[in-house]
Amino acid sequence: MTLVAVLFWILAGFTALSALAVTFTTRIVRSAVWLLFTLAGTAGLFFLLGAEFLGAAQLLIYVGGTMVLVIFGVMLTASHPASSLQTNIAEWSLALSVGVLLYAVLCVVLFSVPAVTDAPEETSRSLLASKYLGSALLGNSSATPAAWLTGFPSEKPLPRTRVHYLLPFEIVSIHLLVVLVGAAYLARAKRRPETKP
């Protein structure tokens, strides 16, 4: 029971309970608060896994950005607080049964994944430093470790080559620009007269 294990169980329990609370809360603002805790728990798990840059990025982008957006959306579309939209029992039972079934299938699949644990002396190590991530994203592949060319398992191991992620990086930046313009356009204040329901 190393420190990593203690921290894992605390963080995983916190994340899982918050995810349950997101699903089963009736009031939408509370649901957003539990989602915030789930995202913070996920960031903690990223830190525990050694992906420090990702943990900080998750907190900055998700908690500091997306959740604020969601809460603003909730507050701008709020109806009367007493009338929270309730789902009836039939739909809940259908959703829960599908969920439990899916979880059972996933567990069966997961047991077929070969178990991997750390060697006893390296229970906690950092993943690649952020400078390698930056080098990969900027197209400087000589600074990053070699990767498999495809993910297909084969009998003879494929030669390892160096890859970089400059193209997805550029695509994502253009994508974000498009999303910015599109969201601003979609959510603009419309000045046409009231339409009949």
């Binding site: 995983a12 899982a16 644990t117």
Partner: peptide
């Protein structure tokens, strides 16, 4: 000790939620 499976089960739980 904490291994890959623990995280995969947690991720599956979050997915189902």
């Amino acid at each position: 000790p904490i291994g890959l499976h623990h995280y995969l089960f947690l991720a599956a739980f979050l997915l189902v939620c």
